[in-house]
Design a protein around this nucleic acid. Structure first.
Lengths: 194, 194
DNA sequence: GAAGGTCAGTAGACACTGTCTACGACTGCC
DNA sequence: GGCAGTCGTAGACAGTGTCTACTGACCTTC
């Protein structure tokens, strides 16, 4: 009846998400998650046979959150594919910088069970959305390839920005100008279409 | 007189580089490096007070190798800033894909002592070279910003390609077409100039 | 109502990790 | 020949992920 019967499985993922946000990825040990959930270190094994699968479940939360944020951005956002791509890109970067630990985990493929766990199922649709918008914003171009290039660019910015490498090289404090440059490069000038 | 007096310090880094190439980053433990170098697990501590510093020394080898490869590419490569940027980009990606473990280590800032160890000293000059070439290839543009965008794009491609995410999304088997798209986006059409 | 069985979680062991400290051997120097 | 200082060894310690034996509660079945 209390919070304790929402199931240990969910409680473990909750504890992991909190711990990740509070202490970072290196603190996300199996035993510490169990401690935070108030169970012994052997308990998680009942639901997650291995540490990797628990981390994957936590990462799936992150992919879900990101997808939800993007969905909401596109629902609230301005009209026009060009502006929507820009809004999506900004949302993506803000997510990465607001949740550094989670973003780090989401792309640490060595820690994740990327195959069977539906990570692809939440990541590929997002790429599909981006491809559609890019295709509408640049009718002539190979939408998939341009979307792939843009995705890689966003991912690279997220990583380098988190480590302050780009700030160091550019002297910027906000990623806005850089993002404008990137969008103009992949989609054409900021005035829209091409 | 034999190989054993080139100094344990260098031997440890050598062993680490080999181990990294052979077994990957997760195998690069302090104790295994010591084992491969033929010493006890406490020996590295004499030269590297912490695991992090040994890994940083190994990563520095990687940055040195990359810088050397880029230097050679630019020396042998074709004339013209546009073509040189393209050659640099290709060299960068080939390095990342030929040495996946090393590339992974080089950008795992949580494992590296990025501050005092001269990593920045090998990475920033490379960015300076790129900025110079970009400035020559696109005289009108903000060279630093475009170079930063391109660098982030290359880094993103290297990561996503290693995880086969981009291959999955694009259906490609070679990164050449994608790289052409990226270079055209940041530098203008493939015919050169703008 | 009592017996048996399944399931969730506990407790402890194991091998492994990075770090720390005490110790031994070997060098060059006076 | 004795002596210091350096280099590497050996063992301890806390922490990790995994595995196995166990306990106890609940649920079914006679």
């Amino acid at each position: 009846m209390t919070e304790s019967d929402i199931g240990l499985r969910e409680r473990l993922v909750d504890a992991g998400v909190e711990l990740l946000a509070a202490e970072g990825l290196q603190a996300l040990t199996l035993r510490e998650i169990a401690r935070r959930a108030g169970v012994s270190h052997g308990a998680p094994r009942r639901y997650f046979p291995t540490h990797l699968e628990l981390l994957s479940a936590i990462a799936r939360r992150g992919f879900g959150d990101l997808a939800e944020r993007v969905r909401q951005t596109l629902a609230d956002g301005p009209a026009g594919p060009r502006a929507q791509v820009a809004a999506l890109a900004r949302t993506y970067l803000e997510f990465a910088l607001d949740n550094p630990g989670m973003y780090e985990l989401m792309f640490r493929h060595d820690l994740l069970h990327s195959g069977h766990l539906g990570l692809r199922e939440t990541s590929l649709p997002l790429f599909g959305v981006l491809t559609g918008l890019v295709g509408a914003a640049r009718p002539g171009a190979d939408a998939r390839r341009v979307a792939g290039a843009l995705w890689a660019n966003l991912h690279g910015i997220a990583q380098l920005w988190r480590w302050r490498s780009l700030q160091l090289a550019l002297g910027d404090e906000d990623f806005g100008p850089l993002l404008d440059t990137v969008l103009a490069a992949h989609l054409g000038g900021p005035e829209g279409g091409r």
